[in-house]
Computed example of a mutant assay.
Amino acid sequence: MPRPAEGCLDGQVHRFAVRAYFEDTDLSGVVYHANYLRWFERARSDLLRVLGIDQRAVHEAGEGAYAVSDLTIRYAAPARLDDHVLIETHAEDIGAASCRLLQKAFRVEPDGAPVLLSEMRVRVGFVGRDGRPRRQPAPWRAAFASFLASAPETP
């Protein structure tokens, strides 16, 4: 039985592959700009799963969830129908209630060469049911701290 797409930790980076489908494109055949946000979100959700963070259990227990508080995105080149796109995520900072991540989307050429499509810096905060910031659960901070410790320095 096929399994859903899964990413992996590869040393200093989390990698998650997606495919550009017809539904992702606009009338010109180029991937619509907002779909990069969806791809980045999937990659972040997968990163949490790979780190052993059970978002669903914490959310269902009423303890809270992550919410995007800030993001900056830059587009460098277009993705097109049927492109193989690789999302890479690096941790930049971990705080008591938030994390800053750098995410990049690359088109993977047939020869394996990556072409930068987009990059985004995002800050996610852990919030309670009331929408106010809360400390992330200690095991989550530890998981992110471990990921951050192996992350490359950013310029």
Rank of each mutant, 00 (worst) to 15 (best):
M1V: 15
L9F: 00
H14S: 07
R15G: 06
R15N: 10
F16Q: 04
F16W: 11
V18G: 03
V18F: 06
F22A: 08
D24L: 04
T25H: 01
T25F: 01
L27E: 12
V30E: 01
V31N: 08
V31Y: 11
Y36K: 00
L37E: 02
L37M: 08
R42I: 07
A43M: 06
R44T: 12
D46K: 03
L47I: 10
L47F: 11
L47H: 01
L48M: 10
R49G: 01
I53V: 14
I53H: 02
D54G: 00
A57L: 04
A57Y: 05
V58P: 00
H59V: 01
H59D: 05
E60R: 12
A65R: 00
A67P: 01
T72G: 12
T72E: 12
T72H: 14
R74E: 14
Y75T: 04
A77F: 03
P78H: 09
P78N: 09
D82F: 12
T89Q: 05
H90R: 15
E92R: 03
A97K: 10
S98W: 07
R100K: 05
R100M: 08
R100D: 09
L102C: 04
Q103S: 11
Q103P: 05
K104C: 12
F106A: 10
E109C: 12
D111M: 09
D111F: 03
G112E: 02
A113T: 15
V115H: 01
V115T: 13
V115A: 13
L116M: 10
S118M: 12
M120D: 09
R121M: 02
G125E: 07
G125W: 00
F126C: 13
R129N: 07
R129K: 11
D130P: 03
G131Y: 05
R135C: 02
P137M: 07
P137G: 11
P139A: 07
A143V: 11
F144L: 15
L148V: 05
P152R: 14
E153T: 04
T154K: 03
T154E: 12
P155L: 13
